[in-house]
Nucleic acid binder design. Structure first.
Lengths: 221, 221
DNA sequence: AAACTTTACGAACGATCGTATTATTTGTTT
DNA sequence: AAACAAATAATACGATCGTTCGTAAAGTTT
């Protein structure tokens, strides 16, 4: 119609974005229940009701935070990997980018989804449903990429894509958890990297590309 | 000394135990912050101040819950394994018992420590410190057992005990998380079992005992 | 039985939670 | 300038939180 940019909506989007930015970071430390409208409004110097009005309920805020976290995750972990050739290379790239994403503390509490998924795993509700869906996407991406790799002849025909995806996820998630818990930003990620590449190397065919042998060490965050 | 059993202390211990029993189970679902004295007192039909008096503060209740959870964990996962011969057999037994412990839902939210460790990983304080210590014990137990196995000649000399412990923990924790999230009590644990035995098989020397071959499922060719 | 200890209760406190209502500011449309 | 729309603020509500205090009940010691 008429308005190219409605300054009101524009302002609204901006604060909404600011709220969610802060919300996901808090939630990565304190969880989505630890999030409180009061704290959020205090830190952002916005009225509590102002924050509230943007979402209508705390649950909606939590759902919006999950979606916001998802976007950050895609930007840091998935995006570049999808530009990489399918198969082992992409699989390795996903793991590598995940490690950088966790290690560089994109969220101050480490992987946002690790924290909030552990929080809502056993609690029915819409937030859990949203997290289940996000988790399913991530799992399927890893599994399909492993399937691609096998079909391309880069993984031995005996390799089980679902199992490999499970193992890789396990290494990544555990590196995140151990790093935070032991306050060590090196060893856990190094172990995860070693475990990941060993697993890929063990299943790779002779013809498969081996991106993990290219440099000495991968770029640090 | 006179009193063999002071009825007052005895009664106190009993309710304290009842409180902690309920507390760890709630915390395995809702976290240690989700725990509330009000809810606890309501469910146990004890006055809120009565519950409170046993611990003196919420933080002390949380610390007591961690200790209570530790005892349950030892009873279900560590105890029998320590009666098993050191080395690969014990290592496998630890994993096996961990899987049963998680899968049988000793805590209704799955592994108590998975939930509450994810909750406090990034939050300084005494609760976190206690969880770090518990985690360190578990990590060291796995690592030392792997070292034993290597020294006994049951694992190849190239095997890295710390790395193996990391990988095993990763499989177990992830099985717990995925099982709760996907509401599947079979597949994730089956995957973890496969991954664990494959890892042990890959590192085992020809002379090593292979307790995982005694049952129904055989290692993949 | 009196003195004392320990457990448990009941009521209340101040703080904070999420939420609802009503008003004000800011920007757009006519 | 008037009418309108959207974002933000001010205020208050009921519920729940962790905690404190004073007291009653149960059990032990003297």
């Amino acid at each position: 119609m008429t308005t190219q940019t409605d300054g009101r909506l524009q302002r609204g989007d901006q604060t909404r974005r600011a709220v969610l930015d802060r919300a996901v970071d808090i939630a990565s430390v304190e969880g989505l229940d630890g999030l409180s409208l009061g704290r959020l409004s205090r830190e952002l110097r916005i009225s509590k009701s102002g924050v509230f009005a943007h979402f209508g309920s705390k649950e909606e805020l939590q759902l919006a935070a999950v979606e916001a976290g998802r976007k950050v995750f895609v930007r840091h972990v998935v995006r570049e990997a999808l530009r990489t050739r399918p198969g082992v290379e992409r699989l390795w790239r996903l793991c590598e980018d995940w490690i950088v994403y966790s290690r560089s503390r994109v969220f101050s509490g480490g992987c946002f989804f690790y924290t909030v998924t552990a929080e809502f795993e056993s609690r029915p509700g819409r937030v859990r449903d949203a997290l289940v869906e996000t988790h399913r996407e991530w799992r399927d991406l890893l599994t399909r990429t492993a399937e691609d790799a096998r079909q391309l002849g880069e993984l031995t025909s005996g390799a089980d894509p679902a199992l490999l995806a499970f193992e890789l996820r396990a290494f990544l998630d555990t590196a995140n958890a151990v790093s935070l818990l032991e306050d060590d930003r090196d060893a856990p990620y190094a172990m995860a990297r070693t475990a990941v590449t060993a697993r890929l190397e063990a299943l790779a065919t002779p013809e498969a590309p081996r991106p993990w042998t290219s440099g000495s060490t991968a770029p640090t965050a």
